[in-house]
């Protein structure tokens, strides 16, 4: 129950203030712009190529949006002194962290739902597999989930939003560059870095409409580790 109470409060904070709408509007505007420039308006292309480009564009924006959404989550509670309300409530730290995760995921889901018209437009002059669309969105959802968890973990470490956002961005970019680093290192680091690669090895499969359990496990693992980290940091600040 506490998880949903926290999630409802945070979702309300995102949607009652202007910050959530600004982030959503900017993300949707840029996604639409890129869809036109790199997709529909980029000359003759196969429909599935346009769809792949769309998911590629969306992937980048999902990561940025997730970091922007979560950098405030726990840091703002500390900054405003409202973490006392969480610490003096019977809710466990895991429930609080899960609530914040669900709220950010809810906003991200709204954003992704509002992009559905773009793949639908491909049907006007072309044809793509609905399974490809579904797989691509599942990938975006998994990517967003992992980035949100990284953002919340980072937010748990700071009292201010800005350093929380910067650290989350550094972590994500470092993991994105894993595939580049893997080429420059020797075994066993090559394999480790290649596996850690945030996008190259794991998101491109979704982008192309291929579903692999290993990729879901990868993003699920990062989500789990991020949320566990945030929970442990909260527990360190609170008694029992």
């Amino acid at each position: 129950m506490y998880t949903f109470t926290v999630a409802r409060r945070d979702l309300g904070a995102y949607l009652h203030g202007y910050a959530g709408y600004v982030i959503l509007s900017a993300a949707l505007f840029i996604t639409g712009l890129l869809f036109q420039v790199r997709g529909l308006g980029a000359g003759a292309q196969y429909s599935h190529d346009i769809l792949e480009t769309f998911f590629e564009n969306c992937g980048g924006l999902v990561m940025i949006t997730s970091i922007l959404l979560t950098m405030r989550s726990l840091a703002e509670e500390r900054q405003m002194g409202t973490d006392v309300l969480l610490f003096t409530s019977p809710a466990s730290d895991l429930q609080v962290v899960l609530g914040k995760y669900l709220a950010a995921l809810g906003v991200l889901t709204i954003m992704l739902a509002l992009t559905v018209y773009m793949p639908a437009l491909i049907f006007v002059n072309g044809k793509v597999s609905p399974a490809h669309i579904a797989t691509g969105y599942l990938g975006l959802f998994a990517l967003g989930s992992a980035t949100i968890a990284i953002g919340i973990a980072s937010s748990s470490l700071f009292k201010s939003q800005l350093p929380a956002g910067i650290l989350a961005a550094v972590v994500v970019v470092t993991m994105l560059l894993g595939w580049m680093l893997s080429d420059k290192t020797d075994a066993p680091f090559t394999d480790v870095l290649a596996y850690v690669a945030y996008w190259d090895k794991h998101f491109t499969t979704f982008q192309e409409g291929r579903l692999h359990v290993r990729d879901l496990v990868y993003y699920g693992s990062i989500t789990f580790i991020g949320l566990l980290f945030a929970t442990k940091v909260q527990e360190g600040r609170r008694w029992a």
């Binding site: 409060r9 309300g12 904070a13 009652h16 203030g17 405003m80 409202t82 973490d83 006392v84 309300l85």
Partner: peptide, 11 residues
């Protein structure tokens, strides 16, 4: 209630 009341200002 701490000295500075902890409140969510947007609510």
């Amino acid at each position: 209630l701490p000295e500075d009341p902890p409140v969510y200002e947007d609510m």
